[in-house]
Simulated assay, not measured.
Amino acid sequence: MPISSRKTTSASGKSALVGSARAHALGMLAGVVLDALFADPRRGHPVALFGTAAAALEKRTYGDARAAGVVHVAVCVGSVALLGVAASRVRDPLARGVVSAAATWSVLGGTTLGREGAAMASFLEAGDLAGARGRLSHLCGRDPSRLEPPELARATVESIAENTSDAVVAPLLWGAVAGVPGLLVYRAVNTLDAMVGHRNARYERFGWAAARLDDVANAVPARITGVLAALGAPLVSGSAGRALAVLRRDGHRHPSPNSGRCEAAFAGALDVTLGGVNVYGNRVEHRPEMGDGPKPSVPDIRRSVRLARAVGFAAAGLAVLAALRG
C-alpha cells in the first residue's frame, strides 16, 4: 500500500474514533437531560427487568459458598457486558448517540432520588409521621417503625448522600471511561450488591463477590462524589473548607469503604452530624458519627437534595468532557 494510502486510512480511522466519542458524549448528555425531565420510567424499567432475571437465576445458582456467588455474578454481569458491547458496535453516529442516551437514562436515578427526598420532607413538614415512615423504604432498608422525625431526617440525608454516588456519579464516570458497556455493567454490579450483598445468614458467603465487586466499582466515584459535595457546600450555605476537613477526618470511619466518603462530605457541607444507631430488621448497627454540627432536621433534607442535584450536574459535565476526549 502506498504511503499516501496508509495516511488516508489512518486519518479516516482517527476521524471515526473522534466521531464515535462525540456521539457517545452527546448521547450521555441527552440521557442526563431525559433523566432530569422524566426521571425513571414507571413501567418496564431495564434495571427492574435485570433484577427480575437475576432473582430467577439465583434460584439455580444459589449455594452457601463464595464460589456459587462468583458464578452468579459472572453470569449476570457477563451477560450485561455482552449486551453493552453489542450495543456499542453501532457505527452510525446518530444511532450510537441514541443508544448512549437510552443507556444513560436507564441507569441514572438522580431525579427519582431527589423526588423521594422531597417527598420525605413534605411528609415531615406536614406532620405526617406514618406517611414518612412508609416512604422511607423507597430510600433505604432501615426499620422505620420506631423512627421519629429527627432519625427519619438523618436516614434520608444519609441515603441521599450515598445514592448520589451510586445512582448518578458512578454510572456517569463508568460511562465516560468505558462507554455503553461501562454504563450497563456498573448498574448491574450495583443492583446485584443491593440484592445479595448483605451480611446475613443467607448471603454472607453467596453475596461476597457482588459486595466486593461493588466496592471496587465505587471506589473512585465515591471519592469524586465527596470532593464535589464539599466544593458545592456554599450552594447550601455551607463551607467548602469545613466540608473538605470533615471528609478527610471522618470519611474512612464508616463501615463501608465508599459510603463514608459521601456521607462525611455531606455532613460537612450541611454542617450536621451523621451516623448513629441503625436498625435493619433484627440487625442493629452502630455507625461512627461524622461531622461537627447538630443532627439533621427536616429542613436539612431539602438542602441535601439541592446539594445532590448540584453534584449530579457537576459530575455530568465532567463525564461528558471526559467522553469527548475519548
Rank of each mutant, 00 (worst) to 15 (best):
M1F: 12
T9C: 00
T9L: 14
A21N: 10
A23D: 01
A23Q: 07
L26G: 01
L26E: 04
M28V: 13
D35T: 03
L37H: 09
D40Q: 08
R42Y: 02
R42I: 01
G51F: 05
G51H: 04
A53C: 12
A56M: 09
A56D: 05
R60A: 15
R60H: 14
T61K: 03
Y62V: 04
G63V: 05
A65S: 15
A65W: 08
R66G: 00
A67N: 12
V70C: 08
V70R: 05
V70A: 15
H72Q: 12
H72P: 04
V73G: 11
G84R: 08
S88Y: 06
V90R: 04
D92N: 12
R96L: 15
G97I: 01
V99E: 02
T104G: 09
W105Y: 11
T111H: 14
R115P: 00
A119S: 12
S122L: 08
A126P: 00
G127R: 09
A132R: 05
G134W: 00
S137P: 00
D143E: 04
P149E: 07
A155N: 06
S159A: 12
S159T: 08
I160L: 15
I160R: 09
A161T: 10
T164V: 06
S165Y: 06
A167N: 11
W174N: 13
V177F: 03
A178V: 12
G179M: 02
V180T: 14
V180N: 08
V185D: 09
V189I: 13
T191C: 10
G197A: 14
H198W: 15
A201K: 06
G207S: 09
G207N: 10
G207H: 11
D214M: 14
D215I: 07
P221F: 02
P234W: 04
L235I: 09
V236R: 08
V236N: 04
S237C: 11
G238K: 05
A240E: 01
G241Q: 03
L247Q: 02
D250E: 09
G251I: 07
N258P: 06
N258E: 06
R261F: 15
A264G: 02
A264E: 06
A267P: 04
A267F: 07
G268V: 04
G268I: 02
G268K: 02
G268Q: 05
L270D: 10
D271K: 11
V272D: 04
L274D: 07
G275R: 02
V279L: 07
H286E: 14
E289Y: 00
G291K: 06
S297A: 15
P299W: 14
D300W: 14
I301W: 03
R303F: 06
V305H: 11
L307P: 10
A310G: 10
V311S: 12
A314F: 14
G317V: 13
A319E: 12
A323L: 10
G326W: 00
